[in-house]
């Protein structure tokens, strides 16, 4: 885990991502990975959307790691990444994959299991 975290660090820094805060009330930390391929508008949009969402719903208990597959193509295999951008929820288990630019906030929340599908339906 630590090895993997170090690998994309230069990318992460550049994009000012890696947040790692703990909230004592909820020990569950969301370990998220965002896979991108270069700085395409879609990737930038996805990152912005993800960060905004995490700040809103997971303040202080999330970690985002950005992996640029152009720089680390071998990592595409590791999480079986086909679509770009993809967010992988490594923790908590089970593993979840959310693809797309994350513009559909409701679906992202469902995907991260921060909200159940029925809640969304009810809200609508």
């Amino acid at each position: 885990m630590s090895k993997k975290a170090t690998l994309p660090s230069p990318v992460a820094k550049k994009k000012k991502v890696s947040k790692n805060e703990r909230v004592s009330t909820d020990p569950e930390i969301f370990d998220l990975r965002l896979y991108v391929a270069g700085q395409t508008p879609k990737s930038l949009r996805a990152f912005a959307n993800l960060k905004k969402l995490c700040e809103e719903h997971l303040h202080g208990r999330y970690r985002i790691e950005v992996i640029d597959l152009i720089k680390n193509p071998k990592l595409a295999r590791e999480d079986a990444i086909l679509a770009i951008p993809t967010v992988v929820r490594k923790l908590p288990l089970p593993l979840r994959k959310i693809i797309g630019d994350l513009s559909d906030t409701d679906r992202v929340l469902v995907g991260l299991q921060l909200r159940s599908a029925t809640e969304i339906k009810g809200a609508k």
């Binding site: 896979y35 391929a37 879609k42 996805a46 597959l69 152009i70 193509p73 071998k74 595409a76 295999r77 079986a80 990444i81 086909l82 679509a83 770009i84 951008p85 993809t86 089970p94 593993l95 979840r96 994959k97 959310i98 693809i99 797309g100 630019d101 994350l102 513009s103 559909d104 906030t105 679906r107 992202v108 469902v110 995907g111």
Partner: peptide, 28 residues
């Protein structure tokens, strides 16, 4: 030999995407 597994159950689509990951993987 490479097995690319696509498990729809664990994928949620939230907007626009492309398959650049596949291309990168194939290219690699």
């Amino acid at each position: 030999l490479d097995h690319i597994e696509i498990n729809r159950a664990e994928i949620i689509e939230t907007g626009e995407f492309d398959l650049e990951g596949l291309f990168i993987r194939l290219g690699g």
